[in-house]
């Protein structure tokens, strides 16, 4: 059987919010080491890769590998019924066609359970090559969200240029053009607010705004976001989930015809 418990429901609510914009349904692959999810958006432009380690759960048991296909809109209906500080337990029998979400209030006086039908989803698993990226930028997640939101007013695409000096985000369209430059921060005392750039080679890439904006739904998970870029390959936008795992979004670049 499979059983995974988190002492607060909030983190799974945030994880779900971070993926349900891009994905209508997804398969949660459960094993002894934890829960993995890999899925492309409908248009096959981006890929979501979620990893939740078994040791990050307050209780975790998975006797046999289990693939649970879930409709994320239905899962969201259920997660909406949990208070942030409720204990959450996900449970499924081996070879089951349902999963149960149980929520327990802090004082244990309210216990709710919701059973959801699982789906058989066609799984396309993509191999993500190990790559050394030419530029890796770490910056405040809120700042990245703000930049994506602001620039999407001006065009459908964002150009990201990274050099040793800093990272520049640009957009242009009928209304005009916009450029936001962030320099590497000089002080190291506030790690959460820092902008750090590790550059092997300068990179300039163009990406669709709407996907970047969807990725920023993960902002509540983490103070910092990491952007990894190399010429002519997908961007990686990574949010770490403290003590539990990470969510990585891969976005195919736009290329000049």
């Amino acid at each position: 059987m499979f059983e995974a418990r988190l002492n607060t429901s909030q983190v799974l609510k945030k994880v779900l919010d971070a993926i349900k914009d891009l994905l209508n349904e997804a398969t949660f692959d459960c094993s002894d080491s934890g829960i993995q999810l890999q899925a492309m958006d409908n248009s096959h432009v981006s890929l979501v890769s979620l990893s939740l380690r078994s040791d990050g759960f307050d209780k975790y048991r998975c006797d046999r590998n289990l693939s649970m296909g879930m409709n994320l809109a239905n899962m969201a209906k259920i997660m909406k019924c949990a208070n942030n500080d409720d204990t959450l337990t996900m449970k499924a029998q081996d070879n089951a066609d349902t999963v149960t979400f149980m929520f327990e209030s802090q004082n244990q006086e309210k216990v709710s359970d919701y059973e959801m039908k699982l789906m058989n989803l066609d799984q396309e698993h993509l191999g993500i090559p190990e790559t050394d990226y030419a530029c890796v930028v770490r910056m405040p997640a809120m700042e990245f969200a703000r930049i994506c939101r602001d620039l999407s007013q001006f065009g459908e695409s964002v150009v990201i240029s990274c050099t040793k000096e800093g990272v520049k985000f640009s957009a242009s369209g009928d209304a005009g053009s916009a450029n936001i430059k962030l320099a590497q921060t000089s002080t190291v005392d506030k790690e959460d607010e820092s902008v750090v750039i590790e550059m092997q080679e300068p990179v300039t890439l163009t990406f669709a705004c709407r996907y970047l904006n969807s990725f920023t739904k993960a902002t509540p998970l983490c103070n910092q976001v990491q952007l990894s870029m190399s010429a002519d390959v997908p961007l990686v936008v990574e949010y770490r989930i403290p003590d539990l795992g990470h969510i990585r979004y891969y976005l195919a670049p736009k290329i000049e015809d």
Partner: peptide
Amino acid sequence: KHRQTAITNFFPNQ
């Protein structure tokens, strides 16, 4: 003048 590529162009199907 920019064309959107697909993620499957970069990552092989396993």
